[in-house]
Design a protein around this nucleic acid. Structure first.
Length: 345
DNA sequence: AATGCGGGGGA
DNA sequence: TCCCCAGCATT
């Protein structure tokens, strides 16, 4: 089969393989043989479970998501369960998945589902898009994987596989409308096949057609891959560097998450907590082992007042902590309080 | 269109 | 070290 021949090259990224059906079959058959046994893929998983798995997987590898998802669904099997949980419990269960604002948005999403949709995850992609923490990718993924909708799902994996195999080069930045329209044209006709196509293309991008060191020798599309034929050209752009970690606000947020877990009796790696601790004033520090407290005291001397001040605003806006004014606390400076910690309940 | 946002694991 | 990971919200 020669899938690569783009007979009707519209323009730019709009290319279409001559034998689209063969491409679909190659991906779907490969997926049937290589699908990872992820917990949310087990039969009977609810739409809510699918939604949770997708939010947890935003910018986070699935291998790290799986254990957190299982525990999360055990604690809060329905949107109503999560909606009524305490913020502290939610953040603790999120553990070290990263970007903890996602956990806050997920709880807000559950509350919106209860309030506005009778406690049931909406089927409609446009409605899903209106929920907190649900963007273009997640709305499409839930519509497709939870409800079997025929829709174009554009995550980093599908974008890369399609760009390489069909177009021959990768596209920088976020998915454009043009790219979305292109992906829609490549969808199989039947909804059932389109779901397998979406899931299979994602899996192919995650396991074989990876960003670095792709395993082309294991790829079912080796023969027709436009990217291989073009000599595997490098991705055109490099993303801007992510904000530094050491000594920044992000590091302190990590420390507060660690303290929150400790206050709930969840083990926390002491070295990680100390490394993440810049300077803060929180009662929960008394719960820390002496060795860790010493480490915190040491790092505290490196405090940057201005940076910490902006951090407090940020944390408060994210709902990660509450700030009391000097008059309220009777102390000098601000006092940071963990939201709904056990002592508050 | 550009930024900010965690944290872990692999090359 | 650097890069990447089933993105989203805000400006």
């Amino acid at each position: 089969m020669s899938v690569r021949r783009h007979t009707d090259s519209v323009r730019g990224t709009h290319r279409r393989p001559a034998d689209l059906e063969a491409l679909h079959t190659a991906v779907i058959d490969w997926f049937a043989q290589h699908e990872r046994p992820l917990p949310w893929r087990k039969p009977g998983t609810s739409a809510w479970g699918v939604l949770v798995s997708e939010v947890m997987s935003q910018q986070t590898p699935m291998s790290r998501v799986a254990p957190r998802w299982t525990e999360w669904m055990r604690k809060w099997p329905t949107p109503a369960d999560l909606a009524s949980a305490s913020t502290a419990d939610v953040l603790v269960a999120w553990d070290t998945l990263g970007y903890p604002r996602r956990a806050l948005r997920l709880q807000e999403c559950a509350q919106a589902i209860v309030t506005d949709h009778g406690g049931n995850v909406p089927h409609d992609e446009e409605v899903l898009l209106g929920l907190p923490g649900i963007g273009a990718y997640t709305a499409a993924a839930v519509a497709g994987f939870a409800f079997g909708a025929r829709t174009a799902i554009l995550d980093v994996n599908i974008r890369r596989v399609l760009a390489r195999a069909v177009d021959g080069h990768e596209h920088p930045g976020n998915a454009t409308k043009t790219e979305t329209a292109w992906a829609r044209e490549l969808l199989p006709e039947s909804p059932q096949r389109s779901v397998r196509w979406n899931a299979g293309t994602m899996e192919l991008g995650a396991l074989v057609c990876t960003s670095r060191n792709p395993r082309c020798d294991e790829c079912p599309l080796l023969a027709p891959c436009a990217w291989v034929d073009a000599g595997k050209p490098a991705s055109p752009e490099r993303k801007p560097k992510t904000q530094a970690w050491h000594g920044t606000d992000r590091q302190l947020r990590g420390a507060i998450m660690g303290l929150l877990r400790i206050s709930h009796g969840t083990p926390v790696r002491a070295d990680l907590l100390v490394a993440n601790t810049v300077d803060f004033d929180v009662d929960a520090a008394a719960l820390l082992p002496e060795k860790v407290q010493d480490g915190i005291a040491k790092v505290r001397r490196l405090a940057d007042g201005e940076r910490i001040s902006s951090l407090v605003d940020d944390l408060e806006a994210d709902g990660l902590l509450c700030r009391q004014t000097a008059e309220q606390s009777g102390e000098r400076g601000s006092v940071l309080t963990l939201p709904q910690s056990p002592s508050d309940q």
